[in-house]
Design a protein around this nucleic acid. Structure first.
Lengths: 363, 363
DNA sequence: ATTAGCACTCGGCAAACAAGAGTGCTAAAC
DNA sequence: GTTTAGCACTCTTGTTTGCCGAGTGCTAAT
């Protein structure tokens, strides 16, 4: 990725200055400004020459003849890859992130929901949190709670220790003993099986064991099936879209429309974030049309995956204009994601005592 | 509410024609158009006179001299209250709503989530679904599922038959027998109590019964407490905002911004929908600034509450421009809400058999 | 290789103008 | 007295015109 060999030191300096200025002010930057404000030791004319070459190389572009230059997507890419210096967070910022993370969060879903809010509020862009699709979801144990003859609660416990309940109401009388048989059968036949591994013969077996109320078996199985697919399905949370509206790149309605479309086409973000190109344990940056999915027309996506053990269980990140404060965003997302990683991989959400050992891991 | 006495028949006819035309085309409507296209049997000049009077009465307004007239909020209000004829849905539309409602929906949360999508897609405006705050949430029964010495699952069953689980991980060893004691104690001390009725003495009582692992009691109670507040908390779902962006009233970014603010200020919608002014069993229409909350600047809110028995458990509706097809929207929301009402109040979500008895009730 | 100077280009802005739509008013017709 | 025709008036919208300024590219001098 480090292809800085082509560019002279001065070109790099100028490119960086242009991008910095453009990120700061959002407007095309001209040679005169660079010569005066940024400390570049040569005249506007020289800078112009360099800029022309940078444009020929594809790092810059001109909105029109006589405006300054703005970075191209390739320019941003180069900037992110080799020029951007890691933003050093103030201790206040670090503390704030740590504190926010320390709120009690039990389920992965809640963590993600909260994470997208955090990502949004810390960066002032739009935060996203993703739970990817996982094909193989299985129940590790079933439990049944008898309510009355017409109602019981089916509890499904998953390998990660989380659980999900479904209330089952039925027409037929089911005794407490029959419920126990049903649950035992489910445990015997369905544990460890994913949604599409449930065989018809297994269902028929269970029905045989419940001669008096065999008709409830198939709806129960159906419920299990639905729950498995539900859990396995991906989910995307988007928070703080209104943050983006303050940025001039989203000033016209059509771009806003594209933005709002994200809400309805969460799938695309899902597939993007969980695609093969994504690198774990590292902040990924997609700029503009780089990604295969083209919802992001003028936008960039910065995210990092979240792992429990070696499984990717989610991702958090932000969406914003290409002209984004990459330095700060990357640092923030990195810290947030690592914090969550470590929370998940520590002993769990133990109550009460305020351990913060997740700051110890990695770096 | 029926204050049509003031207005002559012809004025009403003209007012209705203006609003209809404005709803259809979104532009100010002039006297010439009315005389030609709508069948009003008098000349443009006469219509102009009538329009001037309607404006004086506050039902119409002029964006500027020499544009047509547009309805004022009062005009819309009058229209909705007395002029609008109930849109008669085609059998196809009715069937579609019924079919959509008939998908398996178990939890109230899921119903609402789905309902907002339906409301949005049927009306082409933005759908909202609200679960109001309920102060008194209680657990009717606790169950514990033993996983291992350091983990168990706490199941809380609510009076409506739904359940919620929380995985509790702890440092101390808790045996299966101790868990049973804990659960029995919870059932004895906490059932029927709402979040702020949990007394310290009850907690201490429970701790006494578990001499070997008393330290897990308080975190468990905390979990219960949090779950109760979580369930009791309101929730607002908004779906299909991008529908609105096609309408010219949301053409400039500032209005869109107000729209997006709804996402972050769901509380206000919540309080609006669950306010005292809201009438059950009837479609409520708030136009423009009528409501106390002023998030809706140029927008109207149409919704109806959803009841289980005599309790209001939610509301669904749509948000759109004041210039809204009230006729169709009101009918759609009414049918949707009644459908949901009846689903909730029927025998429950019985599996398999495709009863549609909820169409029988009311009307 | 760098820089100063200058002509050139193009977007943005404002003023000027024409067209069109719709009204309000007055006077005539029913 | 109510309705209608006619006309002047107002105000928005779209188009044209011209000008300003910012920034470039090129050439020639350093």
């Amino acid at each position: 990725m480090m292809f800085d060999s082509n560019l002279s030191e001065r070109k790099k300096q100028i490119l960086k200055a242009i991008i910095d200025a453009h990120i700061a002010f959002g407007e095309p930057v001209g040679s005169k400004y660079l010569a005066e404000k940024e400390n570049i030791s040569c005249s506007p004319a020289t800078i112009r020459n360099e800029m022309a070459e940078l444009e020929a190389l594809g790092y810059l572009e001109q909105p029109h003849t006589s405006a300054g230059r703005i970075p191209s997507e390739l320019g941003y890419r180069f900037y992110v890859d080799s020029l951007v210096r890691r933003y050093t967070m103030t201790t206040r910022e670090i503390e704030e992130i740590d504190r926010s993370l320390h709120k009690k969060l039990s389920q992965i879903d809640q963590i993600l929901a909260e994470a997208s809010k955090l990502a949004s509020s810390f960066t002032n862009y739009t935060g996203i949190a993703v739970k990817p699709k996982t094909e193989r979801v299985t129940v590790s144990r079933f439990e049944g709670i008898f309510i009355d003859e017409y109602n019981f609660i089916l509890v499904m416990i998953f390998p990660d220790g989380n659980a999900k309940t479904k209330t089952v109401r039925h027409q037929e009388v089911v005794s407490s003993a029959e419920l126990a048989v049903l649950i035992a059968s489910l445990n015997e036949k369905l544990t460890g099986k994913s949604a599409n591994e449930v065989s018809v013969s297994a269902i028929m077996d269970i029905e045989k064991r419940l001669p008096t109320c065999s008709s409830i078996v198939s709806p129960v199985i159906k419920t299990v099936y639905e729950t498995l697919s539900e859990i396995g399905g991906g989910d995307v949370r988007i928070e703080g879209v209104n943050n983006l509206l303050s940025y001039p790149e989203y000033a016209d309605v059509s771009s806003v429309k594209g933005l709002i479309d994200m809400f309805e086409h969460k799938d695309e973000i899902l597939s993007l974030v969980s695609s093969d190109e994504t690198i774990d344990d590292k902040v990924n940056v997609y700029i503009g049309k780089e990604n295969s999915v083209n919802i992001m027309n003028n936008s960039a996506l910065v995210f990092r995956t979240i792992k429990r053990g070696s499984d990717v269980v989610g991702a958090i990140g932000v969406i914003g204009p290409c002209r984004m404060n990459y330095s700060k965003v990357i640092s923030t997302i990195d810290r947030l994601a690592r914090g969550i990683d470590d929370m998940l991989n520590s002993s769990g959400q133990d109550f009460g005592d305020d351990d913060n050992d997740y700051t110890k891991r990695n770096r």
